[in-house]
Computed example of a mutant assay.
Amino acid sequence: MKKIIVTGALGQIGSELVGTLREKYGVDRVLATDIRQGTEHSGPSAILDVMDGKAMHDLAKDFGADTIIHMAALLSATAEKNPLFAWNLNMGGLMNALEVARTLDLQFFTPSSIGAFGPDTPKNNTPQDTIQRPTTMYGVNKVAGELLCDYYHQKYGVDTRGVRFPGLVSYVTPPGGGTTDYAVDIYYKAIADGHYTSYIAQDTYMDMMYMPDALQAIIDLMEADSTRLVHRNAFNITAMSFEPSQIAAEIRKHIPHFTMDYAVDPMRQAIADSWPNRIDPTAAVQEWGFKAQYDLAKMTTDMLEKLQQKRITKAIS
Results as ranks from 00 to 15, higher is better:
Lys3Thr: 10
Ile4Arg: 03
Ile13Ser: 10
Gly14Asn: 02
Gly14Trp: 09
Ser15His: 10
Gly19Lys: 05
Thr20Gly: 10
Thr20Leu: 09
Thr20Ser: 15
Leu21Lys: 11
Arg22Ile: 00
Gly26Ser: 05
Val27Pro: 07
Arg29Ala: 14
Val30Thr: 05
Leu31Phe: 01
Ala32Gln: 00
Thr33Gly: 08
Thr33Lys: 09
Asp34Arg: 07
Ile35Ser: 07
Glu40Val: 12
Gly43His: 08
Ser45His: 06
Met51Thr: 14
Gly53Met: 02
Ala55Val: 09
His57Thr: 11
Phe63Cys: 06
Asp66Pro: 11
Ala73Phe: 12
Leu74Arg: 12
Glu80Ile: 01
Lys81Ser: 13
Phe85Asn: 14
Trp87Asn: 12
Asn88His: 15
Leu94His: 05
Met95Thr: 15
Val100Leu: 11
Leu104Trp: 06
Thr110Met: 13
Ser113Arg: 02
Gly115Gln: 12
Ala116Glu: 12
Asp120Arg: 14
Lys123Val: 04
Pro127Arg: 05
Arg133Tyr: 14
Leu148Phe: 00
Tyr151Pro: 11
Tyr152Val: 05
Gly162Ile: 05
Val163Lys: 08
Val163Met: 03
Phe165Ser: 01
Tyr171Met: 05
Tyr171Glu: 13
Thr173Gly: 13
Pro174Met: 10
Gly176Trp: 01
Asp185Gln: 15
Ile186Ala: 09
Ile191Ala: 06
Ser198Trp: 02
Tyr205Thr: 02
Tyr205Lys: 03
Met208Gln: 13
Met211Ser: 06
Met222Tyr: 07
His231Val: 12
Asn233Val: 15
Phe242Asn: 10
Ile247Val: 12
Ala249His: 05
Glu250Tyr: 03
Glu250His: 00
Arg252Phe: 11
His254Met: 02
His257Met: 15
Phe258Glu: 08
Ala272Thr: 01
Asp273Phe: 08
Asp273Arg: 09
Trp275Ile: 10
Pro276Leu: 01
Asn277Thr: 14
Asn277Lys: 12
Arg278Lys: 14
Ala283Gly: 03
Glu287Ser: 06
Glu287Trp: 02
Lys291Phe: 09
Ala292Met: 00
Asp295Met: 00
Ala297Tyr: 02
Leu304His: 00
Arg311Ser: 14
Thr313Gly: 13
Ser317Ala: 15
